[in-house]
Amino acid sequence: MPDVTKTATAVEDAVATPSVDASEPSAKQEKARSLWGDAWADLRRNPYFIVSSILIALLLLVSAWPGLFTSASPTAGDLVHHFLSKPELSKVGSPEWLGYDGQGRSVYARLIHGTRASVTVGIAVTAIVTIVGGFMGMIAGYFGGIVDTVLSRITDIFFGIPFLLGAMVVLQSFVERTVWVVVFALAFLGWTQITRVMRGAVITIKQADYVHAAKALGAGTTRILFKHILPNAMAPVIVVATIALGGYISAEATLSFLGLGLAAPTVSWGVDISAGVAQIRVAPHILLWPSIMLSLTVLAFIMLGEAVRNALDPKLR
């Protein structure tokens, strides 16, 4: 006999008794709990969520007001400060804390000011990709037929382009590569992931009886899409988008490292990593600190994504 255990469902059945009791008196004691509310209650108790959200909050603060954290300029170099002079680790927050780079600029100040580029790219690309990709996926999934066929083939074509290679080609065609050019290049190629997730979710949800019920009531397409399908399809999209955000930040750094993304005088971790490689033997700290920051940031978003995934879909645990 195959050892098919139905225990998972058994547990569910055992505890899936309604929270509303037969006895009326208890009716008032229990609060209305939405699925989002449940997810939030779950999130708050998740240590991964706590750690990652503190990190992300800090990053956002730093990128919005870098002046709060350092008074030193990230671009003004003074060759008085040699990059071989030892970082003074005891002087937390001072310009000399993490040492100086080859041009005598404070590594700490560059770290703080470089945050903005990374965070901006991450958030902007994710926002564009979620809106554009989500919309495409929703249309393709809901309407199906020829609309779906056409949109899905377009998605497939873009999906077929290697992400970094494609971004390089796009960037090559711009003379001046600002943060927004990088955002454009990444979003141009990145939307397909969200489209696919959204399309799959919508196809499942549009067959749910509550969508049929809304149609039977005479609900129009807009109402069905935005009241019934979108709120239920959002969960997987949010998860994928959060994890992808970390990916976009590392993609920006990679492109900058290769000299195709941001370039000096823009301050960015990728630019600094690229510059630090040259002195890796003599002054590893120039490379080390931006790399640590980059990894921490990416990690924070991946952790947040995982925590959100667990909260939104408890069955995955």
């Binding site: 989002w36 009886d209 049929h212 019920a213």
Partner: peptide
């Protein structure tokens, strides 16, 4: 509808 678990929108 048949299935009371899928015929109500869980987010409403």
């Amino acid at each position: 509808f048949q299935d009371p678990y899928t015929s109500l929108n869980p987010r409403m």
